[in-house]
Design a protein around this nucleic acid. Sequence first.
DNA 1: CGGGGCTTGTGAAAAAGTTCACAAGCCCCG
DNA 2: CGGGGCTTGTGAACTTTTTCACAAGCCCCG
Lengths: 216, 216
Amino acid sequence: MTPPPAPPRRASPSTVRRLSLYLRALDTLAAEGVGTVSSQGLAERSGTTPAQVRKDLSLFGSFGRRGMGYEVPDLLHRVRAILGLDRRWPVALVGAGRIGSALFAYPLFRERGFEIRAVFDNDPAKIGSCREGLEVRPVTELPCLIRERGIEIGIITVPAHAAQAIATVLVESGVRGILNFAPTRLHLPPEIEVNEVSLSMELEALSFALAARERP
Amino acid sequence: MTPPPAPPRRASPSTVRRLSLYLRALDTLAAEGVGTVSSQGLAERSGTTPAQVRKDLSLFGSFGRRGMGYEVPDLLHRVRAILGLDRRWPVALVGAGRIGSALFAYPLFRERGFEIRAVFDNDPAKIGSCREGLEVRPVTELPCLIRERGIEIGIITVPAHAAQAIATVLVESGVRGILNFAPTRLHLPPEIEVNEVSLSMELEALSFALAARERP
DNA sequence: CGGGGCTTGTGAAAAAGTTCACAAGCCCCG
DNA sequence: CGGGGCTTGTGAACTTTTTCACAAGCCCCG
């Protein structure tokens, strides 16, 4: 009934992005008690096309029934599994500044299975203070705590000039994936997954689009 | 000397992303006092290829000199202009929670010309309080203040269920571009530029990549 | 139990984006 | 002032991603 039809091929970054959007839409549908959804319906709620939805999903298996569409609870479960969200991910946060603290309190992380199990900072004023019940520890303790708590993902929200050193230590301590909010490019071994988030880049994309409209 | 060789064609989203990266690299180079950089050098610092750098830039004009590369200060200026950063962008922030406050204090925004000129929230506990010298105002005052202060870009950091209503009011008040941090899809007229930032999507992309490695 | 109406899954076509490869051009040195 | 060594700008080839189009399949109704 659900044989992955081919070796689970590489999905492009855009496909992965869309899978996240499908997941979000399915969450909503499930909450609304909708039992079944078509590629059409999913496309409308995710801002893409029905064909795209079907292609994306077909990379990982045949989850629908012809004539009927997809069962919401089933597809929800499948997409979660595809995205690797059918397990808990132990996460460390490095940098307890404003962005770090905001992320820490972001409820969707926990809902998706990301568990922040350690928070680090180098500012003596912050060390020892608590973020939602977790104590901020100095960066010197990072290697030890990362290993002890089995942390696999690190989120970097330190200033750009400190980010590379932090990233290197994280990787040496066993972290396999890094979400980098610092506006700097990290140099790490290729087996480490790095995802850069640049808040100003997002505004710049807006600015580009708006400025382009004003040009002849 | 710099005639845009063709009607400034549409740049793909990936090109725009890379332009942001080039800008970041050029900022660093300028700060280091480097006078000239080749497409090779720019590529290394932005994680792409020399050919890609040249193609991206050639969409907008001929900025280099053969045999020599690009003059850093000149190219910096050009890229800023291409991205629409050669002017100030008046911005409003809707939602003075953690993420909103973090963005407000993010120095890179201001450096790039984005000026937060109004902050709104509906929480009576927050209204009247200050964020870096700017008073948080109730959402009821939004239309008036947006117009009064000539705001063109809105940043939405309210909970998902409130985002659509806020977005609609923003657009009705004259905003042309929206950066949406709320995990929900906005329905707005097509002439409005919308850029969605989903923090959990970024973590999910990591999770997908890490989980994929563990699969057979 | 068979036909009609939908909707999936998927090859094939089209479009978009990236890489290649090289002529054109610039600077410097002799 | 001419040749050599680099580096850009750019058509053409290639790759990836998206869209199209339709056969296959499922359900329901009569």
